[in-house]
C-alpha cells in the first residue's frame, strides 16, 4: 500500500522535475559544455594516432577514426548516466534544508532520484547532434548488431544506477563529515582513470586493465561505450552486464545503509 502510493507519485515527481530542468536549462547547458574532457582526449589521441595507429592489448589497431567514434560515444554516455545527488545532499544537509524533505511522507532518496532523472530528456536532446555527427562520420565503426543495441539501454540504466547510488552513498557521508564533497573528488579522480573516460581501457597495461574489470567505474562509461562502438559481442557483453548489475545492487544496498545511519545521526544532532 505504502509503496503503491509512492509509485503513484512518481509521474508527478518526474513532471515537476522536468519543469525545473526547463527552468534551469541554461545552467544545464553550462554543465554539458563543461564535459570537455572526452573531446580533448579525442584531439590528443587523434594526434597521437596520426603517424601510425595505436595498437591495443587485444591487437586492435586504433586509428584516428576509431578514437573519434570512441570519444564521441563517451561524451553521449557521460551525459546520459550522470547524477549529482552527492552535491545536492551535501548542500541540503549543510544548509539544514534536508529537514523540509524529511517532513514529507516519501523516502528522500526517491525524490532525489526522480529530480535527477527528470533532467534526462533534456540531456538526451543535447546529445542528439553529437549522435548525428557520430552516425554521419563514423557509422562504419558503430556496432551493426541489433542485439547489441538492445543491450545498450540496459547498460545505460545499469551505469546510471551505479552513478546515482554512489552519489547517494558519498552524499550520505555529509551527515558524518564536513567534507564529503572532497571524497567525491577522490571518487571522480578514480572514475576518470578507470572508467574508460580518458582512454579506451584496451590501451591500458594488462595489470591496470584487470584492476578496471573489478572496479565499478568501467561499468559506468566503458561498458555502454564498448557496446556502441562494436567492441563487444552479445556473448561477451552478457557477463559484463551481470557484473554491472551486481555493482549496481551493491551500491544500492551500501548507499541505503549509509543513508539510514546518516539520518539517525541527523536526528540525534539536528540540522
Amino acid at each position: 500500500m505504502k509503496t503503491f502510493a509512492a509509485l503513484r507519485a512518481i509521474p508527478t515527481l518526474l513532471k515537476i522535475g522536468f519543469s525545473e530542468a526547463v527552468a534551469y536549462r541554461a545552467e544545464m547547458l553550462v554543465w554539458v559544455f563543461a564535459t570537455t574532457m572526452p573531446l580533448i582526449m579525442m584531439m590528443l589521441w587523434t594526434t597521437v594516432a596520426e603517424a601510425s595507429p595505436v595498437v591495443g592489448q587485444g591487437g586492435k589497431q586504433w586509428g584516428s577514426g576509431a578514437f573519434v567514434a570512441y570519444f564521441l560515444s563517451v561524451f553521449i554516455v557521460r551525459q546520459l548516466i550522470s547524477a549529482w545527488a552527492a552535491w545536492e545532499i551535501n548542500f541540503e544537509v549543510r544548509q539544514g534544508m534536508l529537514s523540509m524533505r524529511l517532513l514529507r511522507p516519501m523516502h528522500p532518496v526517491l525524490s532525489f532520484a526522480m529530480s535527477n532523472l527528470a533532467y534526462m530528456p533534456m540531456r538526451a536532446v543535447v546529445t542528439l547532434p553529437v549522435f548525428a555527427i557520430l552516425l554521419v562520420t563514423e557509422l562504419s565503426r558503430m556496432t551493426a548488431q541489433w542485439q547489441v543495441w538492445l543491450l545498450w539501454p540496459l547498460a545505460l540504466i545499469g551505469g546510471w544506477l551505479i552513478t546515482f547510488f554512489a552519489n547517494v552513498a558519498i552524499g550520505s557521508l555529509s551527515f558524518f563529515i564536513d567534507s564529503s564533497i572532497k571524497i567525491m573528488d577522490v571518487w571522480l579522480a578514480a572514475f576518470f582513470v578507470f572508467s574508460g573516460y580518458l582512454f579506451p581501457l584496451e590501451l591500458f597495461p594488462e595489470w591496470l586493465r584487470i584492476a578496471a574489470q573489478w572496479l565499478p567505474f568501467r561499468y559506468q562509461i566503458g561498458l555502454p561505450v564498448e557496446l556502441m562502438t562494436g567492441q563487444l559481442t552479445v556473448e561477451a557483453a552478457l557477463p559484463l552486464l551481470a557484473r554491472q548489475y551486481t555493482w549496481a545492487g551493491l551500491m544500492v544496498v551500501a548507499s541505503l545503509l549509509l543513508w539510514r545511519s546518516g539520518i539517525k545521526r541527523f536526528q540525534a544532532f539536528g540540522g
Binding site: 503513484r8 507519485a9 508527478t12 515537476i16 519543469s19 525545473e20 527552468a23 534551469y24 514529507r104
Partner: peptide
C-alpha cells in the same frame, strides 16, 4: 517552495507526495 518554479508546481508535487 521551489525557488525558480511557480508555487503551483510545489503544490502539485506535494499533492503527489502526500497522496
Amino acid at each position: 517552495l521551489m525557488w525558480d518554479l511557480p508555487p503551483a508546481d510545489t503544490y502539485e508535487l506535494n499533492r503527489a507526495i502526500y497522496d
